[in-house]
Design a protein around this nucleic acid. Structure first.
Lengths: 334, 334
DNA sequence: CTGAAAGCGCTAACAT
DNA sequence: ATGTTAGCGCTTTCAG
């Protein structure tokens, strides 16, 4: 194995000069730098990660904790992960993958052994068990998602309240006067998954502000449940002409159900949704929607972490503005 | 930070004894071991990963290289990853996530810097560019998937040839005499993705051995293409009563198409498929299928790697036997 | 069964 | 602008 002393000898300089040339932590004459770079290339030198971590107390590795739970849309998790890895690499860091399953002990382990410099935690719950630990840990962390009490933490996510608002606002602008939110399964609200509640709040507040009649309907993630909700909605709210869907698995069944009940989308019923682009785009009538900007969330999370590692101050809360992609499932009221 | 010398002092032994107590590499008297364990717990000692890696030339980290390609495969990739992480942890290793995008340079980097001890590479192509590097690297690796020339490498995957065979054999056993394989898009065969070809080979060989009339039909991943293939099949092969599908995105459209052409499944037409369980289970008629055993592949890949790290010999090729899950889309010929 | 001590390869004061 | 050197915390001979 070729080491820094080999490079130093070959370039006719001291090891520290090679180290500094590599890190850029002090200025090196152009000539020396060139010789060092040539030697490095010629010898195929690669600094030993462990040695580096030991001497500098920086591993240049970030931990990414991913959820395993069902219901979490798997491709979305994957997109986050890819975005985190890609952005981390751009900042000369690698990413260690941890599963939720490892729990607090896993976080403590990778932090305390100095295996990682910092952590990104996905799928944060309202009263997440890991919060006290994350606050106490000596390594910086960024949470994707907002707990009930985010003080003292750094959190980033789509602004779900604004997303709920944007969906209903679009319907209001199109002239709809009676709208409904078809939301996540009841257990999601009970589990206090934050974002579901926030969507409902944004939806209701904005509907009210625009003077619309509105109602909220949790819905199980099955086609049968979708049919049942659609049927009930049409029966109980005959004036309904606008629906916001925040429940990806039932988006397609819902569109089908409404059409089977004789409503044309968007002729008789306009729909907007909060869900990934892919399912929104492949329904019979493509659905106007707000997607979670996974790539941006992942990248920004890494960047926040890098700033924290540099000792720079960062905002505690980062809420990304929703962006509505128009796909034709929402039209002016007949 | 509490270090090994702190523990040693606290327990009244030398640092090396603590180290050996931790690694189990030499025998320690029961009494000493107890004192050491107590001290470790009391002081909250955690060995420094970098120091350990430097002194032992073992980082206890594995690299996992995941593909980035399009949508359909994503949940499967995630399942692999989770299985790899879980199994690696069981062997006291962590997992570093690399994207395909990093290419050969990424592999070389993590190997040469001793950041990882070994590598798992997913989504290996027939003539994968990374093969020469993987052969030359001084760290062991395991490939998920079989390239054209696997000699000198350690590969593991579902036995796709046997999977193709199993699907058609089931149809043969049920009395079907004329069968077709609806396969992957043409470009998949052209890209020489190995497994697609192997499925076709297993299908054709087994059909022939059972004296069946058989044909193979590549199919684009669109509902329209599915309809077209279904229509052509019924026209050109009026005796057809059995179909094997190896093309996840069109499974559902195909079932729909056949039924729209007046064929009942499985009354008039029996279907078996090679695809993940989830899409197979959610079609109108749940489809009898062979799934890629992601959890097992991931776990076995890690175990192969562990054996290689221990210097033990491992088989170059590990082909996992297909298992057919019966779901009712295949029935005896009328 | 246990200790002493020499590194592992690199970084970062401290010098000059 | 560059060199010298003392560690970083652990493992592992070598010795007993």
């Amino acid at each position: 194995m070729v080491k820094i002393t080999d490079v130093a000898r070959h370039a006719g300089v001291s090891p520290s000069t090679v180290s500094y040339a590599l890190s850029g932590k002090r200025s090196i004459s152009a000539d020396t730098r060139r010789r060092i770079e040539a030697s490095i290339r010629e010898l195929g030198y690669r600094p030993h990660a462990g040695a580096r971590a030991l001497a500098s107390s920086r591993s240049n590795v970030l931990a990414l904790v991913v959820p395993l739970r069902t219901g979490m849309h798997v491709p979305v998790v994957m997109q986050f992960a890819v975005s985190v890895v890609t952005t981390a690499r751009r900042h000369d860091h690698d990413v260690l993958l941890l599963t939720q399953e490892e729990g607090e002990e896993g976080l403590r382990r990778v932090a305390d052994t100095a295996l990682v410099d910092a952590l990104i935690v996905m799928d944060v719950q309202m009263h997440d068990e890991r919060l006290p630990l994350l606050r106490a840990l000596d390594r910086p962390s960024v949470l994707i998602g907002f707990p009930a009490e985010p003080a003292g933490l750094t959190c980033i996510d789509l602004d779900f309240r604004a997303a709920g608002a944007a969906c209903v606002q679009q319907l209001a602008l199109l002239g709809h006067r009676c709208v409904a939110l078809i939301g996540s399964p009841p257990e999601v609200y009970l589990r206090q998954t934050g974002f579901a509640q926030r969507v409902a709040e944004g939806f209701t507040a904005t509907a009210t502000r625009h003077g619309l009649t509105s109602s909220v309907h949790p819905c199980e993630a099955s086609p049968a449940a979708a049919r049942a909700v659609a049927e009930r909605l049409l029966r109980e709210h005959p004036a309904l002409t606008g629906v916001v869907v925040h429940n990806e698995p039932v988006l397609e069944p819902l569109v089908d159900a409404f059409e089977q009940f004789g409503l044309r989308v968007p002729g008789d019923l306009s729909i907007t949704a909060i869900c990934p682009d892919e399912p929104a785009a492949r329904t019979r009538v493509p659905v106007t929607s707000v997607a979670i900007p996974t790539a941006e969330v992942g990248a920004r999370a890494v960047e926040l972490l890098m700033r924290k590692l540099d000792g720079a101050p960062v905002p505690e809360a980062t809420l990304l503005a929703p962006r509505l992609t128009l796909r034709g499932s929402a039209a002016p009221r007949a």
